[in-house]
C-alpha cells in the first residue's frame, strides 16, 4: 500500500508515518509538503491512499481530481456506509482519507484508524487550549463592554455589569455574547461617524 500523508502539522505527520511504517510493513509512506497544492501532489505521486488533515483548505482540490481527464484513476473520499460511527469518529478527530484505484475498505480502515487515534490525542489537547482561550476572550469581551458603558454612558462598574446581565437575560444570550453585541453596535456607530 502506497500512502501519502497530508498534514498541516509536520511533527504529527512524522509520527503518523513512523506508526504506519511499523504497522503496514510493506509499501511506501510519503509526507506531502504542507504548502504545495494537494491535487497537484496526488496527480504526480499517485498514491493508493491519501490521509488528509481536515484543517487543509486545499482538500476541495482533491475532490475535483476525479473529473480530470488526464488522471484516469478516480480519487474518492473514503466512506464506510456500514459503519457511520467510524466515520463520525474520523471526522470528529479531524482526519479523512481518499483512495485511488480500488483500495478496499479492509485495507484502508486500519490505516485510518491509526490516524484517528493520533489526531484525537492532538485534538484533545487543542480542545483544552481552545476552552482556556475562549474563557479568556469571554472575559475580555465583558471587560471591554463594561469599559465602554462606563466611558460612554457614565455608568459605574456594577451598573455596567447589571446592564449587561439584564441585556443577556432579555435577549436570551450568554453574557459574553451580550457584551459582544454592545461592542459591535458601538463599533458600527463609531465607523458610521467617521464615514
Amino acid at each position: 500500500m502506497d500512502i501519502l500523508i497530508a498534514d498541516t502539522d509536520p511533527a504529527r505527520a512524522e509520527t503518523l508515518a513512523a506508526r504506519l511504517a511499523a504497522q503496514a510493513g510493506a509499501g511506501r509512506i510519503r509526507i506531502a509538503p504542507p504548502l504545495e497544492n494537494l491535487a497537484s501532489i496526488v496527480a504526480v505521486e499517485r498514491p493508493d491512499i491519501v490521509i488528509v488533515d481536515m484543517a487543509r483548505p486545499d482538500r476541495d482540490s482533491l475532490e475535483h481530481l476525479r473529473s480530470i481527464a488526464a488522471h484516469q484513476m478516480p480519487v474518492m473520499l473514503f466512506i464506510d456506509e456500514d459503519d457511520p460511527a467510524f466515520m463520525e469518529e474520523a471526522i470528529g478527530a479531524g482526519v479523512v482519507s481518499y483512495h485511488v484505484n480500488a483500495a478496499s475498505i479492509t485495507d484502508i480502515k486500519p490505516i485510518l484508524r491509526s490516524a484517528i487515534a493520533l489526531y484525537r490525542h492532538a485534538s484533545a489537547r487543542e480542545v483544552r487550549l481552545a476552552a482556556a482561550e475562549a474563557e479568556l476572550s469571554d472575559r475580555r469581551l465583558i471587560e471591554g463592554a463594561k469599559r465602554l458603558l462606563m466611558r460612554r454612558d457614565n455608568m459605574s462598574e456594577p451598573a455596567a455589569h447589571r446592564f449587561l446581565q439584564r441585556r443577556a437575560m432579555e435577549r436570551q444570550m450568554r453574557l459574553p455574547d451580550a457584551a459582544r453585541a454592545v461592542l459591535a453596535t458601538a463599533a458600527g456607530d463609531e465607523a458610521g461617524d467617521r464615514a
Binding site: 481536515m54 484543517a55 487543509r56 483548505p57 486545499d58 482538500r59 476541495d60 482533491l62 475532490e63 473520499l77 471526522i91 479523512v96 435577549r171 436570551q172 444570550m173 455574547d177 451580550a178 459582544r180 453585541a181 459591535a184 453596535t185
Partner: peptide, 27 residues
Amino acid sequence: RDRGFFAAAGLDASVVIEPSWANIADK
C-alpha cells in the same frame, strides 16, 4: 450572531468557521 438576531428568533446558534467546502459537506 454578533447582533443577537439569532437569539431574538429563538435560536441559540453557534457559528462554526470551516476551511473547506468538503468539511462543511462531511460535517
